[in-house]
């Protein structure tokens, strides 16, 4: 698999505080990588490192296979765009002037693409309105528009929906999906709005206390989070034999606990078990969301559905 970003045992310390510890992550090409973690877990610190705003204390990272210590990394950086924390825009300039300034800074030969970027970001009608008079959503979109100058193929967005109203969140999501589909731009999106992220991401990286707890694709996560029946039985061997005979997909957790993923009614399953001499001690249905999966990963409470006894 081609990776846009690979981080290898990165560490970052500020005096005695260790913001990142031995962090490794992999962002595949073309992915929308949801970077999930609570406040202070190290999301923004990692983004600052990747953007070259700060240097790691230990470890290394590579962008498009180029190590951050190599000289060529500066050229590679021209392929990335980023919005770190707040949108980086000149507040006393209009949207168009901001984009022109970015074009000049990138050394682009003409301003030809500006109208297209403004339209893409939904800012084509802002005219002479200065950025300081923009709403938060407009500023976020302008931040992304600036990051899009120079046609990057990797966009890093730090909390892009922070402070946006529902309409703004929907517009942001549509913009990200559009850019990913139409321009094949790879995204690294940090967020703690898990519901919103679950509508976008193709891959996830869960960070806690400065290190990645788990990296998983959306398909794998769906598989892990699908609906299942959790059973506590008296005889796990009899349970396995019965499940095999019925052709059910199951997973044994311990000597007494197992999960059944196939669709079946309780009666259809409990009756054969009773015939096989296996007593069902408890049974409950479970459907994990991204939120509950995240909480279980970092050691919080898991939301479970109703328990049937």
């Amino acid at each position: 698999m081609d990776y846009v970003l690979t981080a290898n045992a990165i560490g970052k310390s500020y005096k005695r505080f260790h913001a990142l510890k031995n962090l490794s992550m992999h962002v595949p090409k073309g992915a929308i990588y949801g970077f999930v973690g609570k406040n202070g877990s190290g999301k923004t610190t990692l983004i600052r490192l990747i953007c070259g705003l700060q240097n790691p204390t230990s470890g290394s990272y590579a962008l498009y296979g180029t190590e951050h210590t190599e000289k060529a990394i500066r050229k590679v950086r021209k392929r990335i765009g980023a919005v770190v924390e707040t949108p980086s825009i000149y507040l006393h300039m209009t949207a168009e002037e901001n984009l022109k300034e970015q074009y000049r800074m990138l050394g682009l030969p003409s301003f030809d693409g500006i109208d297209g970027i403004l339209k893409l970001a939904g800012l084509e009608h802002t005219g002479k309105k200065k950025a300081k008079h923009f709403s938060l959503g407009m500023r976020q979109r302008l931040g992304i528009a600036i990051a899009l100058c120079g046609s990057p193929d990797f966009l890093i967005l730090d909390e892009p929906t922070n402070g946006l109203d529902p309409q703004g969140i929907i517009e942001m999501r549509e913009l990200i999906l559009k850019l990913n589909k139409e321009r094949q731009i790879t995204f690294l999106i940090s967020s703690h709005i898990l519901d919103e992220l679950s509508r976008l991401a193709t891959h996830y990286g869960f960070i806690d206390s400065g290190h990645i707890v788990k990296e998983i694709s959306a398909a794998e996560l769906d598989h892990v989070c699908r609906k299942c029946l959790c059973l506590e039985v008296s005889d796990i061997r009899a349970f396995a034999l019965t499940a095999e005979r019925m052709g059910l997909e199951y997973h044994i957790l311990s000597d007494t606990r197992a999960e059944v993923f196939s669709k079946t009614t309780v009666t259809q399953f409990v009756m054969p078990l009773a015939e096989a001499g296996c007593e069902v001690l408890s049974i409950h249905e479970r459907e994990e969301s991204l939120e509950s999966y995240y909480m279980s990963l970092i050691g919080g409470k898991i939301n479970e559905s109703t328990v049937i006894r």
Binding site: V76, A82, V84, L91, M105, I146
Partner: peptide, 18 residues
């Protein structure tokens, strides 16, 4: 100071300028 205040200093470094 405006570069830091508006965050645009970041744009210059992200774009790969030394």
């Amino acid at each position: 100071g405006t570069e830091y205040n508006d965050g645009t200093m970041r744009n210059k470094l992200i774009a790969g300028h030394s």
